Amino acid sequence: MLFCCSKLRSFLGNWGVKVSNNGKVGGGGMMLGADDFLPLFVWVLVQSGMVAAEIEADYMWGLLHPSLLSGEGGYYLTTLSSAVHVLKSFRACSEEFTPGGAPLNWGTGSGPLAEFRSVLKIVVPDERNGSIITKTLPIRPNMTTKDVCKIIAHKVRITNPQDYGLYKLIDGEETVLADTDCPQDLKGNLANSGQHCMFAYKRIDAKIAWPKNASQ
């Protein structure tokens, strides 16, 4: 347990100097969402030659107390697991379709982040300003609604997460997800059947007039 705590502190320390709690990078204050930060993280992971990243991440997920995995710790550990998943999936695809290997292509739409379901975009109503913001989160395989809500609550600084829920949006109709649902699996299954869906994180009591056929 002490070893895992030390690993997590070291992990956060190495990245904390580069990425602040609100997603700003370095002293210049450039904002990065997960769809920008994750490719950078994958590149650094490859360049570092870290061969046991998956094992170390699994140890930390399994042995650390849940209180240590909330907030910033959970966000960056999820980013590590997501990056490992991207590399494993991309390697498998490269070996299957291009035996000689291929460079990483981080393009939108058909790039690894979309193909390997490593990020999740969530819309969040800003009731104070009457607007809707979009947040992109790193996602590890089989991540549940409960875990996704913990990360998004941290990212948008929600102090009463018990009053919020994650909703599936299809043609303007919202359906609350159960804690054990896997949003990425739901999205993939709907896409396979020709349906488009979005996800929204909002107060359970909030009444939002969602637009129909909104694109993510």
Rank of each mutant, 00 (worst) to 15 (best):
M50W: 13
D58N: 12
C149A: 13
A57R: 02
F90S: 06
P161A: 12
V156D: 05
E115M: 08
L80V: 03
Y75I: 00
P112K: 09
P103V: 00
T78W: 05
V119E: 06
I139Y: 00
M30R: 15
Y75C: 02
V86I: 10
P99V: 08
S82Y: 08
L63Q: 08
G172N: 06
K168P: 00
F41E: 04
G194N: 09
R140W: 01
G13Q: 11
T79W: 01
E173G: 01
S81G: 14
K121Q: 11
S10I: 04
R9T: 13
T78Q: 02
G29W: 05
V42Y: 10
V46A: 14
K146M: 09
C5L: 04
T98Q: 03
D163N: 14
V86C: 11
S67M: 02
G188V: 03
A92R: 11
I139P: 01
A153F: 02
V123K: 09
F3T: 11
S6K: 09
K18C: 06
A206H: 02
N14S: 12
E56T: 02
G188Q: 14
C149I: 08
T145G: 06
M50I: 11
A153K: 08
L104V: 05
L8I: 07
F199E: 05
L63Y: 13
V84H: 03
K135P: 00
A83L: 01
H196V: 10
W106Y: 07
A114H: 06
H196W: 06
R117G: 06
V119Q: 02
G71I: 03
L63G: 05
L2Q: 14
M198R: 02
P138D: 13
D179I: 02
M198V: 01
N129A: 11
K212P: 00
A83T: 03
K212Y: 04
Y167C: 03
C197L: 04
K202Q: 12
S20W: 06
Q216R: 08
C197D: 04
A102K: 05
V46P: 03
D163L: 11
G130A: 10
G107S: 13
W106L: 11
G16V: 05
C5P: 00
G73P: 08
S20A: 15
M198F: 02
S81W: 05
A209P: 03
V148N: 01
I55T: 14
K187W: 03
G29F: 04
G172Y: 05
S10Q: 10
L38K: 04
W61T: 04
D179R: 07
G111S: 06
K24G: 05
G101P: 08
L69C: 09
D35K: 15
I170N: 04
R203P: 01
K212F: 04
G33M: 05
P183L: 07
T144S: 15
V44G: 10
E54C: 05
V176S: 15
K202A: 12
C4G: 00
S48V: 10
S110N: 11
N213Y: 03
I170C: 09
Y201N: 02
G130W: 03
S6D: 09
A34W: 02
P66W: 03
V51P: 09
W15M: 15
S94P: 00
Y59T: 12
K88H: 14
T159A: 15
G194F: 01
E174F: 01
L40S: 10
G101C: 01
P112T: 10
G28T: 10
G16A: 12
V84P: 00
R157A: 08
